[in-house]
């Protein structure tokens, strides 16, 4: 790693920190701009009770002080405050609980889509314009233009209701099959298309022709030269893929009733559980920002030809 590279990493790191801070700030002030405050909707509260509750949660202090306390608690204790609607539980606990399921779901989906996508894309590129290439391209085009909530609902109808093969409820391990498939289909289709075009690009390069001319066997060209180099664009997609999986999991967990962080987020929106909305947004958004950062840096490390700006 040379000094230019180091400069780039530092610059990106600063931008990422700034972005996370900005997300915290936006979330905080946007949430506090809501008219009426969080306790107005409560049934049978007198002004005295409301004042007491606001004092308990520190909502009576000046906004700036609340903001800095909130930031300090996040940085030092990873504490997002208590949940307003799920009594007695802190937002941190709920997030950790949900994350366990959601991470499992997301990681399996990411792994499945990457592996299948790379293989299908490579096959399509090597059999360019043959029947199998056409079939792969038609199917992936269809998958790319189908919103995840529709894909999930259709899968639910097909495989859990019409032909009950897997449970519709995502609370058990077997029940995670459909959510994983739903989440994985779009990135898989995207990676397939990405892989196909980058593989075609690589196969047309001079060093492949040189290898052919030297008499290197077809298998060795594919695995030793072409595959490795055409994986680089796929690598850049990892960040956006995670963002997709995070937002996709919101609807997928709703459809299949998976007890993950996405479902908590959606229900906290309908319940107007503000600390919960803030905490979840900050955690998920930071996850995406960090993943984008890692992807970008990895991209530069893997391919030294890419110029840094």
């Amino acid at each position: 790693m040379n000094s230019k590279m180091l400069g780039y990493v530092v610059k990106r790191l600063l931008l990422a920190v700034l972005t996370v801070l900005l997300i915290c700030t936006i979330t905080f002030f946007v949430m506090h701009a809501v008219p009426g405050g969080p306790f107005v909707g409560e049934k049978a509260t007198t002004p005295a009770v409301q004042a007491a509750m606001e004092a308990k949660y520190g909502l009576d202090k000046p906004l700036a002080e609340q903001y800095f306390t909130y930031l300090k608690d996040i940085v030092t204790k990873f504490d997002f405050g208590p949940s307003l609607k799920q009594r007695g539980r802190s937002v941190k606990d709920i997030i950790f609980d949900g994350m366990r399921t959601s991470l499992k779901l997301g990681l399996i989906a990411a792994a499945v889509s990457t592996v299948i996508g790379v293989v299908l894309g490579a096959v399509a590129a090597l059999r360019r314009n043959k029947l199998i290439d056409r079939i792969i391209m038609v199917i992936t085009t269809a998958f790319v233009s189908m919103p995840s909530f529709i894909m999930g609902s259709l899968l639910l109808i097909l495989f859990a209701i019409k032909f009950p093969m897997v449970p519709a409820n995502g609370t058990t391990s077997a029940g995670l099959i459909l959510p994983v498939v739903t989440l994985a289909l779009y990135p898989m289709a995207y990676i397939t298309r990405l892989m196909r075009s980058s593989m075609l690009d690589v196969l047309g390069q001079d060093y492949i022709r040189t290898a052919r001319a030297k008499g290197v066997s077809g298998m060795r060209i594919i695995f030793g030269h072409a595959l490795k180099n055409s994986l680089i664009p796929v690598l850049t997609y990892l960040g956006p893929m995670l963002a997709y999986i995070v937002t996709g999991s919101l609807v997928v967990e709703r459809i299949f009733a998976v007890p993950g962080i996405g479902r908590q987020f959606v229900s906290s929106i309908t319940n107007r559980d503000y600390p919960m909305i803030m905490g979840t947004t900050i955690v998920l958004a930071s996850l995406i920002v960090i993943m984008n950062l890692v992807t970008d840096i990895l991209y530069k490390v893997v391919d030294p030809r890419i110029t840094l700006d």
Partner: peptide, 11 residues
């Protein structure tokens, strides 16, 4: 670099 969907939901 803001995650768009989350910001859309929040806003």
């Amino acid at each position: 670099s803001l995650p768009d969907m989350l910001m859309v939901i929040l806003l």
